[in-house]
């Protein structure tokens, strides 16, 4: 629901990082997005495309990797992916587990043009 705010933060991070690596253009940004975050990938992509306009990331492709929810069962310790946080453990059928993966909202890598090429573009 707050995809616009999240997209703005991503664009800020891209502009900041590109500036510290010679001022080139950002072509691809890769994001890990956990299943338990309240962020919808389609809305985020739309907000991101709009947010990049007029920056060194204009036209940048956002590659989102959805990370499934991974729980460690409170009862038996079995760790594995689950469709939902209150789905029963596949091993012991108990409900509930520690969230081991699913809260991620993390930029991992960027692909930057060299600054000299970027000048040609600009």
């Amino acid at each position: 629901m707050h995809e616009v705010a999240v997209a703005q933060r991503i664009v800020e991070a891209l502009v900041d990082t590109a500036g510290r690596h010679g001022g080139g253009r950002v072509r691809i940004a890769r994001l890990d997005l956990g299943a338990l975050t309240c962020v919808d990938p389609e809305s985020l992509t739309f907000a991101f495309d709009v947010g990049c306009r007029g920056t060194c990331a204009e036209g940048c492709r956002l590659e989102i990797t959805r990370l499934p929810l991974v729980l460690r069962c409170f009862a038996c310790g079995d760790e594995g992916p689950r469709d939902g946080p209150v789905d029963p453990c596949p091993r012991c059928k108990a409900i509930g587990g520690e969230v081991r993966q699913g809260r991620e909202l993390r930029l991992t890598t960027l692909e930057l043009d060299e600054a000299s090429q970027a000048e040609g573009v600009a």
Binding site: R9, I10, T17, L105, T109, L110, L112
Partner: peptide
Amino acid sequence: MTEVAIQRDVLFDND
């Protein structure tokens, strides 16, 4: 193109 690894939480500045 140059790949840059940043591994940065998007909500880092909020945190």
